[in-house]
């Protein structure tokens, strides 16, 4: 289960950093499960897309970034925000639509932002943020700065013209962009095989950029690949493409009756769970025991509960702020 390369990576990262990865994945899992409950209670409304099952993608990729780097992602964005260190209180309050939310209650689940953390947003129009990521790369180049933009999206994006336009232009202009495709096998209910005539990395390779496919249920594999991609982009060698094969445990959104897949398929995926996997690897390496894991879970639970309480007691945005931020002076 743990390859030699991964042994090396684990040794290099050490117990503390791996502990952080484990904690972040557990935090995201618990945060998402709690969101699901709160949705049923009507505390969270609108579209809610949970990230449960895909945690290794966010944690493995975003932890390769420096503070000055940027992250753009799609609407399934809570996990990415949390992995980037966006305040869980602000995220939960946003889901509640409260004034203290990261977007003041204007964005909701699909549109989280925290510019100070370099988290430049969740984008709810499939593939619309890919060109933005290339544009940020142009800005880095023209300003002589060496920040990298990590652009995360679902495999459903490959059908959109903007996916192709963005990949092509990022290579033409050699932008420091890491394209990170979370292939969870479905775009809503459409199986990936029914929406793409080829394989994802082949598309990227066709535009002449390095492209790899990794096990997105394995945080170490994701980390290893993304680290290389970020180094490549930062060194001025241009864009890099990663496909992470993953699986979402919950429906596409809270409104999904999941008619398109069998329960067995979901159960099968859960046997490859990213949290169980890292936990097992850390235990085998003597970096963690059951007690330690229980502590991680308790810590995450406390953070999630604090976030819920914060969101509950936060005020609604005042009606007279409706027209705020329509234009910047």
């Amino acid at each position: 289960m743990t390859t030699d390369i991964q042994h090396d990576l684990m040794r290099e990262l050490g117990a503390e950093r791996l502990g952080l990865f484990l904690y972040q994945m557990v935090l995201i899992r618990q945060f998402e499960e709690r969101c699901g409950e709160l949705y049923t209670k009507g505390k969270i409304r609108g579209f809610l897309h949970l990230y449960t099952g895909q945690e290794a993608c966010a944690v493995g990729s975003i932890n390769c970034l420096e503070e000055r780097d940027k992250v753009l992602t799609h609407y399934r964005d809570h996990g990415h925000a949390l992995a980037r260190g966006v305040d869980p209180n602000g995220v939960m309050a946003e889901l509640f639509g409260k004034a203290t939310g990261v977007a003041g209650g204007r964005g909701g689940s699909m549109h989280l932002y925290d510019v100070e953390k370099g988290f430049l947003g969740g984008y709810a129009i499939v593939a619309a943020h890919l060109p933005l990521a290339v544009g940020l790369g142009v800005a880095a180049q023209m300003k002589g700065e060496d920040f990298v933009t990590l652009c995360i999206f679902g495999e459903g994006s490959v059908g959109e013209g903007e996916f192709h336009e963005a990949l092509n232009m990022s290579v033409l202009w050699n932008t420091p962009t890491v394209f990170f495709c979370e292939n969870n096998l479905y775009g809503m209910g459409v199986p990936f095989k029914a929406s793409l005539s080829t394989e994802v990395p082949k598309l990227a390779a066709a535009y002449n950029m390095p492209a790899v496919s990794v096990d997105g249920m394995d945080v170490l594999a994701v980390y290893g690949a993304t680290r290389e991609a970020v180094a490549h982009a930062r060194a001025g060698k241009g864009p890099y493409f990663i496909e992470a094969m993953t699986y979402r445990y919950r429906g596409h959104s809270m409104a999904d009756p999941e008619l398109y897949r069998l329960k067995e398929e979901v159960e099968e995926a859960k046997r490859r769970d990213c949290i169980e996997r890292l936990k097992g690897q850390m235990m085998a390496a003597g970096m963690l025991d059951e007690e330690g894991f229980a502590e991680v879970e308790a810590r995450a639970r406390a953070v999630v509960e604090e976030a819920v309480e914060f969101a509950e007691r936060s005020p609604q945005p005042a009606l007279d702020t409706l027209f705020d931020h329509l234009y910047k002076e």
């Binding site: 060109p131 290339v134 142009v138 800005a139 300003k143 963005a166 232009m169």
Partner: peptide, 27 residues
Amino acid sequence: ERVRDTPIAESAIVGIGIGAAMGGLHP
């Protein structure tokens, strides 16, 4: 660098402009 011919890709042209603006330029 400052006068860029692009492929025929209107949404990417505007999208890249938006991204560059977010990155501190005025395209």
